[in-house]
Design a protein around this nucleic acid. Structure first.
Lengths: 125, 125
DNA sequence: ACAGTTTTGACAACCGTTTTCATTTTCCTT
DNA sequence: AAGGAAAATGAAAACGGTTGTCAAAACTGT
């Protein structure tokens, strides 16, 4: 498992946002790559197992993947129509999470925050 | 939409944890209720629309529901050790989400916020 | 080149969820 | 009560994303 796995990883690294498996598959195909959807799924699984990509679920239950930027901590604003994703910083949210956790006696906390909406170019269409 | 909707809500209120639609359906059937799976799904949707239950996705993409203790919008603080869940209100987060979305031209937004940690009684054990 | 293992991909199977649609129930008006 | 429109129901089919199957193709070391 290497050829296509690297290809998928590459696509993801070039992307700035979360991408779905089908989405990646479509892009690779129209780029002329001869790869199967199954292989894309397998590559994503493997990459996730290796901790090289992370995955989250949209409101609709679709899995979307992203190469780990691992930079700063930030959250995502995802268009539920076209999948476009903006990275947004949320210092307020971080503080809120810390405070609320402390208040309830919870320690060692982590949090997930994802905002879904319809982006400007998809609105009204 | 009332008979079965109340029944589903009742099941949820008696539950202490998140339940899947299929799970609820199975319980109701073995309790002798003559209800269809479709109706369970519709009841859950309606209850969710009314803000009486909240829904989240498991890692596997399955939707799980839970009766809201409070009728207001809120988030969860989940103990990663024992699974204990506290409902927490997050007006700050709501405002933050709205603001950030508007700033990027996103409309019609929803958000998921889940905070994981180790609760007081699990700490130090 | 050769045998053995791994990877691949078309296709079918899966599973949770939604849609369809005909039937039943509920509710309102006489 | 009776009649009729509107809402609710449920069995079965459709759907969409994901995973399994399995034979063919691509690597591996000898």
């Amino acid at each position: 498992m290497s050829r296509s796995r690297d290809a998928v990883h590459e696509i993801l690294r070039r992307s700035e946002s979360f991408r779905s498996a089908q989405d990646i598959f479509t892009e690779m195909r129209s780029d002329g790559a001869k790869i199967g959807l199954t292989t894309v799924y397998r590559a994503l699984q493997a990459l996730n197992d290796d901790g090289r990509v992370d995955v989250l679920r949209t409101d609709e239950g679709e899995a979307v993947y992203r190469a780990c930027a691992s930079d700063l901590h930030h959250h995502h604003l995802v268009c539920r129509r076209c999948g476009r994703t903006e990275e947004v910083a949320g210092p307020d949210v971080e503080r809120w999470a810390e405070a609320i956790a402390a208040e309830h006696g919870f320690a060692d906390i982590t949090h997930t925050v994802e905002v879904f909406g319809t982006c400007a170019s998809c609105t009204g269409r």
